[in-house]
């Protein structure tokens, strides 16, 4: 594999896949810190579980495929997938669900397609979608941030040493909004709902709004470090704001504000860490705008009108299918072929 460069360039920059992936992980830290602060350190346990099983799956598959273990195991890409899965699943999900999701993402969605760089779909989103389809009940058990349960107890819940009690089973803010609206067809008013129900906070889900704000912060940092480009995230958020804004302006009583949608569910995590995935996303600047914007609109539609609590994963997967096509038709004009200025 290794080849001594016999031709130029002889002098190379310091970029490496490992460095890119580690910086992405660092970009997740503000969100994780907020998670720990508003909810509980249990998320760190989940991250550890997901990481362990991702690396395990990666190692096994690399071995089976006869690829150099040291090179690929250390590239950090499996860890990024693992962390995203842990952050996307409910924090009190049983350990085996996290493990299954991690293994599924790495073994099926990544390695079976050819490993690093070859997967047409975002592995974390595939795993998330598979879980939500196979275990809808477990996947919708988002505890309220006001849940009083000691860390030790949470760990026991995760490892199945303590049963899930009903009190722990909340619903995501998006879910509660949807359910409430469904239950009182036409009779409710979103603003008053948001003001009265405990699950809602200042501008989105109570507590969770700060976690998503952490993702925003980390994402902006990644952009500043030139690890991600602005096109896909901005277009995603623009798409989400555009469509949610349109519905909101049309019937403010029935539809939540764009702000609520921005800071709810997986919006910001998706904007900065999922639609920016280079492997499965669009690569041309215009393509990334189209990719992001469409994903934002789709995410809203699935989230509000579909049967799932959040539409982000499905939106991204649908767009992953279109990415090669989008790239093909958005090839930039090259030097000298743009007409003289």
């Amino acid at each position: 594999m290794s080849r001594y460069l016999s031709t130029s360039p002889y002098q190379l920059g310091n970029a490496s896949v490992r460095r890119v992936m580690l910086l992405v992980l660092a970009g997740l830290l503000p969100g994780i810190a907020a998670y720990v602060w508003v909810f509980s350190p249990i998320i760190l346990v989940q991250i550890a579980i997901a990481s362990a099983f991702s690396l395990l799956g990666e190692a096994l598959m690399l071995k089976v495929r006869g690829k150099p273990l040291s090179l690929f195991l250390g590239d950090g890409s499996a860890l990024v997938t693992a962390w995203l899965i842990a952050l996307a699943l409910p924090p009190l999900a049983p350990w085996w669900l996290v493990a299954v999701a991690a293994l599924f993402a790495i073994v099926i969605a990544k390695q079976l397609y050819g490993g690093l760089g070859q997967n047409p779909f975002n592995p974390a989103m595939i795993a998330f979608a598979a879980c939500i389809v196979s275990f809808p009940a477990l996947m919708s058990m988002w505890p309220s941030v006001t849940l009083k349960l000691s860390f030790i107890d949470q760990v026991q819940v995760v490892f199945g040493l303590m049963p899930h009690v009903d009190a722990m089973n909340g619903a995501t803010p998006l879910d509660s909004l949807k359910t409430s609206l469904k239950l009182n067809e036409g009779g409710v008013n979103v603003p008053s709902l948001l003001a009265t129900q405990e699950v809602f906070g200042y501008f989105a889900g109570r507590g969770w709004e700060w976690v998503t704000a952490g993702y925003l912060l980390g994402g902006l940092w990644l952009w500043w470090r030139d690890i991600i480009r602005w096109q896909a995230p901005l277009a995603f958020l623009a798409g989400l704001v555009a469509i949610s804004g349109a519905f909101w302006l049309w019937q403010p009583a029935q539809y939540a504000s764009p702000l609520f949608h921005l800071f709810s569910g997986g919006s910001l995590l998706c904007a900065f860490f999922i639609v920016t995935d280079p492997v499965s996303g669009a690569t041309t600047p215009r393509g990334q705008l189209i990719f992001g914007f469409s994903a934002g609109i789709l995410a809203y539609l699935i989230r509000v009108f579909g049967g799932y609590p959040d539409g982000v994963a499905f939106a991204v997967l649908l767009l992953n299918i279109c990415a090669p096509l989008i790239d093909r038709y958005t090839q930039p004009r090259i030097f000298g072929l743009k007409g003289t200025r």
Binding site: M1, V17, V20, G115, L116, G117, P278, V279
Partner: peptide, 15 residues
């Protein structure tokens, strides 16, 4: 000019 690190697959990062 150290020998370059081993070649990895393209991750389509667009750099």
């Amino acid at each position: 000019f150290p020998p370059p690190p081993p070649e990895m697959p393209c991750i389509r990062c667009g750099s």
